[in-house]
């Protein structure tokens, strides 16, 4: 009984926070837009009984999903989001791995402090941190003023309102999600494995490639997913730091929802986004499972 209760908790969580909202969104995606409160039809009217429920289901259709195929905007936005998410994940890995490696190599007594420093930015509002990047990256911002002062550039660099700023924003925001799993993989790494590799004829660099990288693979994969998945649906960073050319599905969704007041189409876009996200999430889960099996648990 106690076991059942314990298992029920995460499932209840999943039901309330994932399944129920998803069903609501899915239902709206099958509706039609209307000038009313709420701005779609049909709505479920339980007072008219069984007839009402039947009429409700009869009025649902896949029209909004077919609509998404009629305009290249949508698949272009999905593709562009995938591209931005993939590139920023890669860049985050390139920045995060050395940081995690440095942390794992540092003396034991420093590690809690370094870990703290990685987590520290979370103590400030995400929005404020992204806003402060606007201050850093704008034409009159700190970065340009500094570069102008050093004489490295003579004209301010246009970074804010371009994809560059979006990449910087995503890397900055999600870096801890990359560092922490890699760090935890590297921290577990037995230093004697590297000595063994050297002893068997590896230089330090080959030992790194043949031992450190493969053994931190699980951390790398976990970190990449933790960055890729939220980056794909990211809205705040591209809308604050990106320019008008930054095409991401989060922004398209916003437009459908707010500018067109077309909740059904917006919901259809969201359902598709979720399906796209489910693929990496399932891959991630399988990878985790494989890892657990590999560790013989």
């Amino acid at each position: 009984m106690r076991r059942f209760t314990l298992i029920a908790v995460p499932y209840f969580w999943l039901l309330v926070l994932f399944l129920v909202p998803f069903i609501i969104v899915f239902k709206i995606s099958l509706s039609d837009t209307a000038l009313a409160i709420p701005p779609y039809t049909p709505t479920l009217d339980l007072s008219s009984g069984w007839e009402g429920i039947r009429g409700f289901f009869a009025a649902l259709d896949w029209e909004n999903f077919t609509f998404l195929t009629t305009d290249d905007l949508y698949w272009k936005a999905y593709l562009s989001s995938l591209q931005i998410a993939a590139i920023s994940t890669l860049l985050t890995l390139l920045v995060g791995y050395p940081v995690a490696y440095g942390m794992a190599q540092s003396p034991d007594e420093w590690r809690p402090t370094l870990m703290m420093l990685v987590i520290l930015p979370f103590w400030t509002s995400f929005l404020i941190r992204v806003y402060s990047w606007m201050g850093i990256l704008s034409n009159e911002g700190f970065l340009n003023q500094f570069l102008l002062w050093t004489g490295l550039i003579s004209e301010p660099l246009q970074i804010l309102n371009t994809n560059k700023a979006v990449y910087i924003g995503i890397i900055y925001t999600y870096l801890p999600f990359m560092i922490l799993p890699i760090y935890s993989a590297l921290e577990k790494l037995d230093a004697s494995l590297l000595e063994a590799a050297e002893d068997l004829g590896c230089s330090r660099i080959t030992a790194f490639w043949l031992v450190t990288i493969p053994l931190s693979k699980q951390g790398i994969i976990a970190g990449c997913f933790l960055v890729f998945i939220p980056a794909l649906g990211e809205f705040v960073i591209p809308s604050l730091l990106g320019g008008s050319k930054t095409l991401m599905i989060g922004k398209v969704l916003w437009e459908e929802f707010f500018s067109n007041r077309d909740w059904p189409v917006a919901s259809a876009v969201a359902v598709i986004l979720l399906l796209i996200l489910i693929i990496p999430i399932v891959l991630f889960q399988r990878n985790e499972q494989k890892q657990r099996e590999a560790e013989g648990q």
Partner: peptide
């Protein structure tokens, strides 16, 4: 109207993003 609104929004997206 909602129909024209969709045209306007789409046009706007196209203008802004080139898509």
């Amino acid at each position: 109207s909602p129909k024209v609104q969709r045209v306007v929004t789409r046009l706007w997206t196209k203008i802004k993003s080139g898509t």
